[in-house]
Design a protein around this nucleic acid. Structure first.
Lengths: 213, 213, 213, 213
DNA sequence: AAATAAACGAGACGGTACGTCCTGTCTTTGG
DNA sequence: CCAAAGACAGGACGTACCGTCTCGTTTATTT
């Protein structure tokens, strides 16, 4: 396992961080469409060639910036405390907080771009979106295995789409926030959707219920 | 009520249609980002100024093209047959078919653009997205009034987000189709989410049920 | 000799004059290059097509405007009073005054344009410039016939070029005015250039001389 | 005396020359009006921005092209051989040859443009036209100092205008060539115009003299 | 310490789309 | 049938950014 002998000046971590930070900042400020490599380089105080040397497109810059951001958060994806609904809540809270900070502009712009760029789509799903989906799916599977949930009536895939679809939809159309309240409502809705046949309706508390005997 | 006297050469409906058609076609073929006004004008066989004369941006062109498409479909939005779940199915089938044809690229691109353009966002919601949302909401309200559905546990707003969120999410990430099967699953899931407290589980058939003890 | 029967609405003299006036005014104000047919039509309060119907190019408009201006001045071209130098002075005074009023911009611009438009060049020479040249030449010829001048040493053609060349040169480069003083100096210079061999130097008055008995 | 450190890619002399050459060539071929920056860039095989980066207008391109041409010719402006008339002939021959090659179109077009652009006018006079004028004036002044010429009757300024006016006039109206013959005639005419009072007519040979008593 | 080599900033290069303006033609209403 | 109004296809304008290419400089490793 011979290492490639390092020759010449090593890559500047300072420049790399400056580029990623500038990309996220500009995308958040001016929107995805208005983001240009020239603009990123200038905002980062970096030569344009330095960007092109390491990233082929502005999408690649943004994607790496997002991946870095996610990694730095180092969020625990799939906690397993034995309490399925509690795990769901935890996961949703973490995910929603990340989504709010994650510069919706960047994510939505990348998603739009990924419409006709399968490679980008795959990387986006693989590094940013996919792990969250998989984590939720895992929690639900464990719930089914424990008998707390059932996929007899509604498939787990649809349940996962329910959660992330609603999140995305609100991120995009802004008609309602993606906050802790949404996490609570979604958790409750999931419990109804996936409730096993024999479970009583009272086994779980409805969010808005005022106490109903 | 004197009409403004018509002076000068009247606007060419031919050119208008050519522009709108070319815009949708190019957006579908090359994606939203690659769409340019120059490209639209050339594909439509139209002078560039003719586009700028009537539409300020490519977003405006796409928006009008979508609106035209929706209007031409003239889809019945909120059928009221007395059968709430049947009405939901009808509405979903119509909406999904439209979404599939509607050049997801255009819609998603516009959505991305609308992130930092409140005016576009409003027009997009008002003309293309909003009516569908409102129609579904109306159907659900009627269901609640008839006692077929209940919003005690899950708010109707969240239920609507569930449907459209899932649709959007699949349109964007392509991990599953937006087809009649999805309409069926969503209808069934809605019936579970909004089932009144006293209703028996058997009142409604589960779509993909494999076994039922 | 049957006249062509006049049919339909007759041409509007008002519009014609408005166009010609606007053309001269705009050319004087903004220069020849900045002159556009659209601008002329709008300044004249006239439809664009009305200009194109009667004149093929902006050059044609300007040329007709100049021709009109010259005709309206109705300047006597070649007075024959018997006093050759006096006739020259008269002719130069008239010509210079016309040139000053004639919107040098228009004339110079047309000349520049005529560089690669032989037809325009011919019409320009024929209607505006040529008659003046011919008139001066006639006066000089009469002077030679009377023995007051001689073309032995300097050809009359060169003498004419001397006068008009100097005028044009000053109109173009603005380094000195084209005024009565120039007319006087040129007249005196001509008398020297074309003085017959036997004439005394005193036969003609030098320009700056104040009365010399 | 520290030089400004050279940074970035240096300007391409190849591109500069290609632009200047293309500009002169196109102006000569199609005329000044038809000259466009787009056309220059394409003919030079150069990006349009490369032209705009270094020259603000097509006038500036032409002016620099002319200046380069003049410099490359490196013409001796004011020879001083002691023979005034000989010096004049030499200067005129050089100037006329340059003018013929110098793409009259470019010069006349620039002159026309300079009508309403004082800055251009000044630069045009300063770099291309002025030095020739000054050179001729110097020669004439030396002639006066030597007693070979006199400015008693005709001012030297008018004499200079005579020469350059005639040249310009012929360049513009094309009614006669600007060749060696013109140089000879003008030299002779100058000798008459500026002949000192006491000089005999025979001191200088008339060029086209037919008979001499 | 000197040589080598790659990354760095800067910025010019050939291109392309932008949004504006004008061209010359056309198509309408109205005198 | 002319005039005004103005939409039409087309094309040049001057600007911005693209992605590539030199430059001189800096910062490492390898002699």
């Amino acid at each position: 396992m011979a290492e490639m002998a390092a020759r010449g000046r090593p890559r500047s971590e300072t420049a790399r961080r400056a580029v990623l930070d500038a990309a996220l900042r500009l995308c958040q400020r001016d929107g995805y469409q208005a983001l240009t490599i020239k603009g990123i380089a200038e905002a980062a105080g970096v030569g344009r060639q330095t960007v092109y040397r390491w990233w082929p497109t502005k999408e690649a810059v943004l994607l790496e910036a997002l991946r870095d951001l996610v990694h730095r958060q180092g969020a625990r994806l799939a906690p397993d405390t034995g309490d399925t609904l509690g795990d769901i809540r935890t996961l949703l809270d973490t995910t929603f907080r990340l989504a709010r900070e994650l510069t919706g502009h960047a994510l939505v712009g990348l998603m739009a771009e990924a419409q006709h760029d399968p490679g980008l789509s795959a990387r986006l799903q693989g590094t940013v979106v996919g792990p969250r989906r998989a984590a939720l799916h895992d929690v639900l599977v464990r719930g089914v295995e424990r008998g707390e949930l059932s996929d007899d009536e509604v498939s787990l895939g649809l349940a996962v789409d329910f959660v992330f679809g609603t999140m995305w939809y609100r991120l995009i159309s802004h008609h309602a926030p993606v906050d802790d309240d949404l996490a609570q409502q979604l958790t409750h809705a999931l419990s109804r959707l996936l409730r096993p046949a024999g479970a009583t309706a009272d086994g779980l508390a409805a969010p808005g219920r005022k106490r109903r005997l």
